[in-house]
Design a protein around this nucleic acid. Structure first.
Lengths: 205, 205
DNA sequence: CATTAATTTCAGAAACTTCTGAAATCACCG
DNA sequence: CGGTGATTTCAGAAGTTTCTGAAATTAATG
């Protein structure tokens, strides 16, 4: 590996972090390198910088493309592919969130739904379904929130973040002034709201 | 593996998911099992249910304890350890977030800060620092928001979630009525706010 | 349509992680 | 304080992932 020391530390750290996240080390390193590079890099630049095999670079770039994390550039009169990351860090965050949701959250939700459709064959299974329904509802709440918030432009999202929990304090006040928080009285968190995930046994009780 | 079919699917799915997250398959399965079990389980119950070795169970439980994801119970006149997960799914989510932050986000922030303190030795490094500063600031904004919001009781957090982006619409209106959004005019997202992460070269420009 | 250069694929080697059974440790009891 | 049974540790076996170099493929050019 042949890199200026600051960039080197960054790249190595992201390699480490990558492996904690199920992304592999090389993929993490390549991403980090592209992220800080002042111009798009081609595969051989990466081979050179990280000292890994050409084929490994090829496979890892493929992986990064599958995650939509890199942008492909072409220079005139050069048929090599050059790669960068998007300039906007918020955009990167959005992509990351979207991809992880697609790969991890959505399949989990659908497994949970499927299990919850089946009839429980025992007390034990009925209890398990109850627990899975709780998990299902939590995840559904979070993804609904996410789907809503992800559409915000960056500036608004940043505003929302910088307010944080202050918002609830604001809402406290509004509750009493504007007619805004009305629906919330009847709906305590933890209780089931959607019909979809209700286990079979419920009707009999 | 000797489990009712519904529970079996759930456990297997969490095993799979676990491996995507750098948590290992067995640990994921054990967690899933404890999560849906109607009562605390001891190590031998787990061996029996999942058909894995006693020592593997021991190590995996250790791992789960290190993540604060399981609760230890003792029955009177029985010196075995029994394990459960907390009843409240929101609590589980909080713990998960806290632990992941501790292991992944905090170290990344501190690596970034460290690198940003060092003087850039070249154009290339200076550019890299600029990029790292952007990443640093984004992460810092997110963790500040998280630190703020995590203190909310579950009920309020749920309210906040269920409002989602509606809040910004509410704020639009308030901006004009109450004197609440004043600070935001001068502070465009994307621009540097904290001094901490500013790369050395800035002062000269 | 042959040549050349870039890129991808893939089988197996290397590295790493997970899992096991045997041995060591621990903690309670008489 | 020795015996008993539960639990943990650990060295190495089994399994998995990552990485490489050689071969195959692709695509542009004369």
């Amino acid at each position: 590996m042949n890199l200026p020391p600051l960039i080197r530390s960054f790249v190595l750290h992201f390699g480490e972090m990558g492996s904690r996240w199920g992304i592999n080390r090389t993929v993490g390193q390549i991403y980090a390198l592209l992220y800080v590079a002042p111009r798009p890099l081609c595969a051989d630049d990466i081979v050179e910088a990280l000292g890994i095999s050409r084929s490994n670079v090829s496979m890892s770039l493929r992986e990064l493309q599958a995650w939509n994390l890199v942008v492909l550039k072409h220079l005139p009169d050069d048929r090599r592919d050059f790669f960068t990351t998007p300039d906007d860090v918020w955009q990167i965050l959005r992509t990351l969130a979207e991809e992880r949701k697609k790969r991890e959250v959505d399949p989990t939700l659908s497994v949970l739904r499927e299990i919850l459709m089946q009839p429980a064959g025992s007390e034990e299974e009925a209890h398990a379904q109850q627990r899975m329904a709780e998990m299902h509802d939590l995840i559904e709440q979070l993804t609904t929130w996410y789907d809503d918030v992800k559409r915000l432009e960056t500036e608004r999202l940043a505003t929302l973040l910088s307010l944080g929990s202050k918002i609830t304090r604001l809402l406290e006040t509004k509750d009493r002034i504007v007619s805004f928080g009305r629906a919330r009285k009847s709906e305590r968190p933890g209780e089931r709201r959607t019909g979809a995930a209700t286990p079979r046994k419920d009707p009999e009780e």
